[in-house]
Design a protein around this nucleic acid. Structure first.
Lengths: 106, 106
DNA sequence: ACCTCACATCTAAGTTTTTCGATATGATAC
DNA sequence: GTATCATATCGAAAAACTTAGATGTGAGGT
């Protein structure tokens, strides 16, 4: 079971529109950095940095073939994030009702 | 249909572990700021700032009752974010296969 | 009216993120 | 080996984020 911090890191990675778009692109299948770079108005070093972030949070996997680095989505992390998001946003039964000013003020 | 930017904003809001925890707390039902503040080691102004972010991205709704501000999750935004996340992470059929070095180098 | 409570806003410091250009690395081509 | 290509890393500047203390605001209590 991952911590809030670990899951939040994935959310943070998706919090950049360009990275969200990269994830979208990768959902079509594995891509090398060069193909991703073609679609964006960013420098190569910036893309490399974004890819590093996406990999470090577990959302993306990398694979080295010759000169190229191929990136693809990590379905396990995606599944976990979906589960986490569902867990923190769906109504829970076991919760204590926490009414403000409970107990009154004397 | 919302833009990448708008959805990314929600992800960014969830990218802070404390805000993710606040969302988790709110999934148990509406809470006033005072009750949320009790659970965290942060100043009142900091919490107020986080709540503003959560409201601005649409994830949380606010309601004013007397001295108190009550916060609750906005299920519509949650639904939309789930749909967006699913859309950008599930395999698509209509994608063009983009193989690196396509066309060769002569 | 005056005080207090709950919360928002302002200001400012410290930290992190984003981005690029320059440089490094490692693989393939010649 | 040398050149080139794809990508990573370094270094630095600018922008954005996080946080707390001080102050403002508006509702209620006395």
């Amino acid at each position: 079971m991952k911590t809030y911090l670990e899951h939040a890191r994935v959310f943070k990675a998706l919090g950049d529109p360009k990275r969200a778009m990269i994830v979208d692109m990768l959902s079509c299948g594995e891509l090398c950095a060069c193909r991703i770079l073609e679609r964006f108005n960013i420098s190569q070093s910036t893309l490399s940095h974004h890819m590093k972030l996406l990999c470090e949070c577990g959302l993306v996997k990398e694979r080295y073939v010759g000169k190229w680095t191929y990136y693809s989505l990590d379905s396990e992390t995606i599944k976990e994030l979906k589960a986490f998001f569902h867990a923190i946003t769906s109504e829970k039964e076991a919760c204590i009702s926490m009414v403000c000013d409970k107990g009154g003020r004397k």
